[in-house]
């Protein structure tokens, strides 16, 4: 066992163990780690925002692309209007920038939602159902499951009779789907836990496990 001599590894281990103290109860060590990550994250965000957005996407085009770049002054003025939210008396001016972003965003989403979330999904659901393994055990399940799931989410009609029966099948599919998602999430979290434990054992304690 060779303990790491890298100060950064020691710092990372300190914070890793500090976070794990939360398993006992909320305590100052955990709160310390929490406030450090909030501050570091904010500092990281500020620096990246300055370099990637302000400099690369605003200042450089503004000063190098001539008239096309100068047009960026218009959204900059709208952006400044958004900042008026800080002063309650002028906060209404931020509505112009919000209106531009929300309006354009909604218009942007409208055809794309139809295309990606509706048409493409319907297209992928229209599968051939025939007497074969794929036809029965894959395609039939997908068609029935999707339709039954959709019927379950249709609340304008009471879930009774045949309609209720199909909605009930939808619940079964949704439950299996949620179970699969839960199981998958558990394994992803366990994988992260293994990663942290290996970091302590290998990088910090220098243990050669495999």
């Amino acid at each position: 066992m060779h303990w790491s001599t890298d100060i950064w590894v020691w710092i990372a281990v300190f914070f890793t163990l500090s976070v794990y103290t939360f398993l006992w109860k909320d305590n100052p060590l955990y709160k310390f780690a929490e406030s450090v990550t909030v501050g570091i994250g904010m500092g990281f965000g500020v620096v990246q925002w300055w370099n990637l957005s302000v400099v690369d996407r605003f200042w450089v085009p503004l000063t190098t692309r001539g008239t096309i770049g100068l047009v960026l002054i218009i959204p900059a003025i709208m952006g400044l209007m958004m900042v008026t939210r800080i002063v309650p008396r002028f906060a209404w001016m931020s509505r112009y920038a919000l209106a531009f972003s929300i309006g354009a965003g909604s218009g942007f989403m409208l055809p794309r939602a139809i295309q990606a979330s509706i048409l493409q999904q319907l297209y992928a659901t229209m599968l051939p159902i025939n007497i074969s393994w794929t036809g029965l055990m894959v395609n039939l399940f997908i068609v029935v499951g999707t339709l039954a799931g959709l019927i379950y989410f249709f609340f304008s009609k009471e879930h009774k009779g045949v309609f209720g029966g199909i909605a009930n099948i939808g619940i079964w599919f949704l439950m299996v789907g949620f179970g699969a998602t839960f199981g998958y999430t558990v394994m992803a979290r366990l994988s992260l836990l293994i990663g942290r434990v290996l970091f302590i054992l290998r990088d910090f304690l220098g243990m050669h496990l495999f």
Binding site: S106, M109, S117, L122, G145, L147, G149, L150, V176, G177
Partner: peptide, 23 residues
């Protein structure tokens, strides 16, 4: 298969919802 069917029903619902919200 069943997970995909459930997710697809949810995605379709979300798609219709976002379409209406945009409108």
């Amino acid at each position: 298969v069943p997970n995909l069917a459930a997710k697809r029903a949810i995605i379709l619902g979300v798609g219709l919802g976002s379409l209406l919200m945009s409108l």
